[in-house]
Amino acid sequence: MNRKNPFACYDRAFMARVLAAAIAMVLLSFISKWLGLERGSALRITFGVMQAALLGYLIGITIYSLRKLDELQYRIQLEAVAFAFAASAIVIAGWGFMTKAGLPAVQWGPETWMLMVLLWALGLWLVRRRYQ
């Protein structure tokens, strides 16, 4: 694991698969908008199912990559995931309270996933400091 790059413990093939799946998800969104598909139409739902399947694929390959790590790296990653999970809940629930207080509402969809990934990176940075 590289000190400067918290994701260095993942191999290039993993990162390439994640990037490809992320690009495919974004492309599906753009194509769906470009075609002007109506909400509830069979094709729009098919696009949604494909995006959800890609997300499932991402989770699967992430778990597979985690299992290949040695015990300390595995522990660091799991602690970072736990941090991201709790911190995401705090951010989303906290924003919900602030929305009731008058701040603009946020429709947490794919943004939740991005928030969790960012918080995972933050969690990795925090947890790794303990073992350096």
Binding site: M1, D70, E71, L72, Q73, R75, R130, Y131
Partner: peptide
């Protein structure tokens, strides 16, 4: 079969191995 960082963490007492 572990990383150099794991060896370092064990040696410095920051991590107790399984």
């Amino acid at each position: 079969g572990v990383s150099r960082q794991t060896v370092n963490a064990i040696e410095t007492g920051k991590y107790d191995p399984s």
